[in-house]
């Protein structure tokens, strides 16, 4: 059943990583990505691996969940590996046939690239695993706030995001209901040619659209009734505020980034 799909990637928890301000986490993920791309050789990669492993350990997210998240991306990871394997020249040639040449340099580079992608994915997953979608949206809104000056509708965009998150379960439930109702009238969603199947979706999509518009209409009236008038003059019950741990996290981020720049310069 559609209802069984778990929504979002958020694993609630009580660790320091969970408690960090979402803005801190968003910025640190960017720092992390930059640092990762500064890595050149064994030592710097090993350093980043240790940093990532430490964060995962502190967050108490299970290794299994991270591996599960990597699974759908396995193709990209393998593809990058193969590409690097064959396109990197240098070192001793181990294998040579037609246009395919594998060298020791190729193996090393393929391995490091795979590590880089896996660390990159793990780092960003850590953000979504430890931050609720709403906190993420709030954090993004506040980080992007300066863009309001150049007329970017930051508040509206974040409102749309959080509304969408709010209505996903409702719409899934609704889809389930309409599907059952049409099946009860003999509709068949699972067999037939592609064109037939696409046509069979019409009885599902039309009512879903109609009801979504109705919902949107009612929701707008309900929001207005509760004094919604855009982002102006709005306050927040749980206003985001930076705590001591956030500053400590920034400090740690700066040290990692500094270290990586130094290693990059020395090429290790």
């Amino acid at each position: 059943m559609l209802k069984d799909i778990t929504l979002g990637q958020y694993f609630p928890g009580d660790t320091i990583i969970h408690k960090l301000d979402p803005r801190t986490k968003l910025i640190l993920v960017i720092v992390f990505i930059v640092a990762l791309f500064l890595a050149v050789d064994w030592i710097s990669y090993a350093f980043m691996f240790v940093v990532t492993a430490l964060c995962v350990k502190v967050s108490t997210i299970k290794l299994k969940s991270i591996l599960k998240g990597l699974k759908p991306l396995i193709f990209i990871i393998v593809f990058t590996g193969i590409l690097n394997l064959f396109y990197t020249q240098g070192g001793t040639v181990l294998f040579d046939w037609w246009i395919f040449t594998i060298s020791t340099a190729g193996i090393k580079r393929a391995f490091l690239m795979i590590v880089r992608i896996m660390l990159l994915i793990t780092g960003t997953f850590l953000l979504t695993y430890t931050t609720s979608p709403i906190a993420l949206t709030d954090g993004l809104e506040m980080l992007l706030n300066p863009l309001k000056k150049i007329k970017v509708p930051v508040h509206e965009m974040s409102m749309i995001m959080s509304m969408a998150l709010r209505f996903i379960p409702t719409l899934i439930e609704e889809t389930d209901k309409i599907m059952s109702a049409q099946k009860a009238r003999g509709a068949d969603f699972s067999t037939g040619k592609i064109t037939e199947r696409a046509k069979a979706l019409l009885p599902l999509l039309v009512p879903l659209f109609v009801s979504s518009f109705r919902r949107a209409d009612e929701l707008a009236v309900a929001m207005e009734s509760r004094c919604y008038h855009g982002g102006e003059g709005r306050t927040r019950m749980n206003a985001l505020h930076m705590a001591r741990r956030d500053y400590l996290a920034f400090l740690a981020g700066a040290i990692v980034l500094g270290g990586m720049i130094a290693m990059n310069i020395y090429g290790i």
Binding site: K177, A181, V206
Partner: peptide, 13 residues
């Protein structure tokens, strides 16, 4: 066995 769901008006298309 014909089954009419609750609020069936939302299934019309």
């Amino acid at each position: 066995v014909g089954l009419v769901f609750q609020y069936p008006e939302y299934q019309l298309f």
